[in-house]
Amino acid sequence: MANLYGWIVYNGNLITDKFIDYVSWFQQAAQKQNITVDAIPNNRLLVTTTSKGPAITGFGNKKPDFVHFADKDLHLARQLEALNIPVFNNSRAIELCDNKAYMYQRLSEKGVPIPETIIAPKIYNGLPLQDQSHIDLVIEELGFPLIIKEAYGSFGKQVYWVENQEELTKRVTQLTGTEFVFQKPVHSSLGKDTRLNLVGNQVVTSMMRTSDSDFRANVTAGGKTMPYTPTAEEIDLAIKSAKAVDCDFAGVDLLFGEDGPILCEVNSNPHLRSIFECTGVDVADEMIHYIRKAVQEN
């Protein structure tokens, strides 16, 4: 088979150093394996529906052999798949991981150990919080302290620690119109977790993240990292979790529960620099190898 040609799709209106670094990193990894990857912003590929079937305006003449989808534009990911282009991760995985409420429902259905979580009832955007009765139900079930996580959020942002009813009511009122979840903290793992990077059904590398000043251990939130050797139980849980949300590639975050590991969340587009700087393992190399094999086998 001739050398592969692919795209990495990124968000054309989210141009930050972190995302630019990721795109460049992936392209360089592909080049090392003689694969050409062009970086394409999502706003240059317009999802178009016609009576003749799905199309993409701006597609050009050269069809890629694969797309690495480093964005969350589900309409575009689905359209690429409708045009029979292999997409990694696929639109289903992106959809499941992008919305934490949706993700926790799926993980629960698959029997994955997760913190006790309550999904906030829907309040339409622009409407006030008129009925607060669900707040009492949350307090009765979870107690204090508790954690609120917005459904859409990355790098440990949009995650809030709540100590009492006054703080809870204030935060819920502020989040009216926003999807979010209430979650019981895993006290044995505050300020500490593990990140396992998976490619296919293999854990490629892992690190521990710790924070002395925050219940979140994310590097962006100030956490420190160190190489970590996961236990067999942690590896099994990470693989089960990634499978549950249909990920080819995943950054699986695990908490240290009193009775064993607990799944914190699955990231469908984990950034690579932090874990490389911690462990010296370039996950992108394994991602490219996986894509090549998957495309050639199909």
Rank of each mutant, 00 (worst) to 15 (best):
M1S: 13
A2W: 11
Y5E: 06
G6M: 07
V9T: 09
Y10Q: 00
N11P: 06
N13C: 04
T16R: 14
K18R: 15
K18H: 14
Y22L: 13
F26Y: 08
Q27D: 00
A29Q: 00
Q31E: 15
I40R: 13
P41A: 06
N42Y: 10
N42G: 09
N43P: 07
L45N: 02
T48I: 03
T50D: 07
S51W: 13
S51L: 14
G53M: 08
P54G: 09
A55R: 07
T57I: 07
F59W: 07
F59R: 12
F59G: 03
N61E: 14
K62R: 15
K63I: 13
K63Y: 10
D65H: 14
F66S: 05
D73F: 05
L80V: 02
P86R: 10
F88K: 02
N90E: 06
S91V: 02
R92Q: 14
R92L: 14
A93R: 06
A93P: 01
I94N: 00
L96R: 06
K100N: 08
Y104R: 04
L107D: 01
L107E: 01
I114H: 05
I114Y: 10
T117E: 02
T117H: 01
I118M: 10
P121V: 03
Y124F: 15
Y124W: 15
G126S: 01
G126Y: 06
L129V: 12
D131P: 10
Q132V: 13
Q132E: 15
S133K: 11
S133I: 03
D136C: 00
I139G: 02
E140M: 07
E141F: 14
L146S: 05
G153K: 05
S154F: 12
F155W: 15
F155C: 13
Q158A: 14
W161D: 04
N164E: 00
E166F: 07
L168Y: 06
K170F: 11
R171A: 12
F180D: 01
K184D: 10
P185I: 05
S188P: 09
L190F: 06
G191L: 06
N201S: 14
Q202C: 08
V203F: 04
M208P: 09
R209L: 12
D212F: 02
D212I: 03
T220F: 15
A221D: 09
A221L: 12
G222L: 04
G223E: 08
P227R: 05
P230V: 00
P230E: 01
T231S: 15
E233H: 13
E234D: 05
I235P: 04
I235W: 08
L237M: 00
L237I: 00
A238R: 01
A238Q: 02
I239H: 01
K243S: 13
A244K: 00
D246T: 08
A250G: 01
L255M: 08
L255D: 05
G260C: 02
V266F: 07
S268W: 04
P270T: 03
P270G: 04
L272A: 07
R273I: 00
R273C: 06
I275V: 12
I275A: 12
I275S: 11
I275P: 11
E277Q: 15
G280N: 08
D282E: 10
D282R: 12
V283W: 10
M287W: 01
M287E: 05
Y290G: 02
E297V: 11
E297S: 14
